[in-house]
Amino acid sequence: MDHPSPLPASPEQFPATRPLKGRGAASNPEGRFESIRHQAEDDGWQSALLDGDAPRPRTEVTEERARSVISRNDSPDIAFSQAINPYRGCEHGCIYCYARPSHSYLNLSPGLDFETKLRAKGNFAEVLRAELAKPGYAISPINIGSNTDPYQPIEKKWRLTRAALELLAECHHPCTIVTKNALVERDLDILQPMAREKLVQVFVSVNSLDNQLAAKLEPRASAPHRRIKAIAALAAAGVPVGVLVAPIIPALNDKDMDAVMAQAAEAGARCAGYTTLRLPYELKQLFREWLALHAPQRAEHVMSLLQQMNGGRDYDSDFRTRMRGQGVFADLLRRRFEVACRKHGFGRARELTLDTSRFVPPRKPSPQGELF
């Protein structure tokens, strides 16, 4: 006799029948490398649990020991060649995050696992010091936060981003930071002196001013108005700061582009950039699921415009178009962005040149400690 699959033991295994408060994803689909697929069967008990107070998935952080921390790329559409990421996964839970599929390499789901089962590289600063001290190290600005947000909530406890900044400041190494969390203000005591030496530039990501929409798109990131205040705090401290209107999702948040840029300019942002929504790998399924739960009446229109911007597909990985899209709607976004830049006096995001001439390689870790 065939038996149905066991009742799922936790909410992250339920089919996505409703949103989960405080989380971006509503399900936990297997990663693309998994050979086994699980399918929940409702025998009546599941429905009863969903109608009651089902336990919410909690954030779990596992410490890992990194062997290397500097990643390098030669992509023609990325402004930096070096990056560091203290964490794997991101508690912000942004449903649109292009980094979600990277969790599949850990045999975890790009869905709820990405925002609840996090990895912290406990030896991050130690390994970074060793890599910067290598005789053949070629200096170029390092981006912090290219994959997951360096100031996500768990940074309050782990302080790995701060430790990295302390090291970069010590050896006068330039860096850029991308974040959507006001926690960046905590490190102004490091960022301000680095800014005086042209060693740092911060980009704050704000893609909408609608708090209700932001709470669904990026549930554990700082609220949009709080990010604007963070831009003001950075600018007041003399730290070069720009705004990234990213990602722009057609028929969902594109209407806010000019308003975001206006408020960011008033707060002191000096440059601006934007990207359109990218849906690589498993993200296609997760975003369609999110639309069905949060914007069912717009879902078909949103996906139609996205496909028009991607040559008829949900996503086109071509380096020439993946960041901005193509076609009529993409051209309209580009013109609107250019008009807003002229209107608000923005320069391009790549205009600031960071100083690489001051770099002094750090000393390698030694069991004898510092004698002099």
Rank of each mutant, 00 (worst) to 15 (best):
residue 285 Q to I: 11
residue 250 P to N: 04
residue 244 L to N: 14
residue 245 V to L: 10
residue 236 A to L: 10
residue 279 L to A: 08
residue 262 A to L: 13
residue 274 Y to V: 00
residue 284 K to T: 11
residue 246 A to D: 10
residue 275 T to Q: 14
residue 263 Q to H: 13
residue 285 Q to H: 14
residue 248 I to H: 07
residue 253 N to F: 02
residue 251 A to I: 03
residue 246 A to V: 04
residue 285 Q to M: 10
residue 250 P to L: 02
residue 243 V to S: 06
residue 270 R to F: 08
residue 249 I to P: 09
residue 242 G to V: 11
residue 250 P to Q: 05
residue 286 L to N: 08
residue 237 A to W: 05
residue 244 L to E: 08
residue 274 Y to N: 01
residue 283 L to P: 09
residue 247 P to T: 03
residue 235 A to S: 14
residue 276 T to Q: 09
residue 261 M to E: 00
residue 244 L to G: 08
residue 277 L to P: 02
residue 239 V to S: 00
residue 267 A to F: 11
residue 269 A to Y: 04
residue 251 A to C: 12
residue 266 E to G: 07
residue 269 A to G: 02
residue 252 L to N: 04
residue 267 A to R: 13
residue 260 V to F: 08
residue 234 L to W: 06
residue 232 A to P: 01
residue 284 K to H: 09
residue 262 A to S: 12
residue 274 Y to F: 15
residue 237 A to Q: 06
residue 253 N to M: 05
residue 231 I to H: 03
residue 275 T to G: 12
residue 272 A to S: 14
residue 260 V to P: 02
residue 284 K to L: 08
residue 283 L to N: 15
residue 250 P to S: 03
residue 280 P to M: 04
residue 270 R to I: 11
residue 243 V to F: 10
residue 251 A to L: 14
residue 248 I to E: 04
residue 263 Q to L: 14
residue 283 L to E: 08
residue 275 T to H: 13
residue 254 D to T: 01
residue 241 V to D: 05
residue 239 V to H: 03
residue 269 A to D: 00
residue 267 A to T: 07
residue 240 P to V: 06
residue 265 A to E: 09
residue 244 L to T: 05
residue 278 R to S: 09
residue 274 Y to D: 00
residue 268 G to F: 09
residue 254 D to M: 02
residue 287 F to H: 07
residue 256 D to M: 09
residue 244 L to W: 11
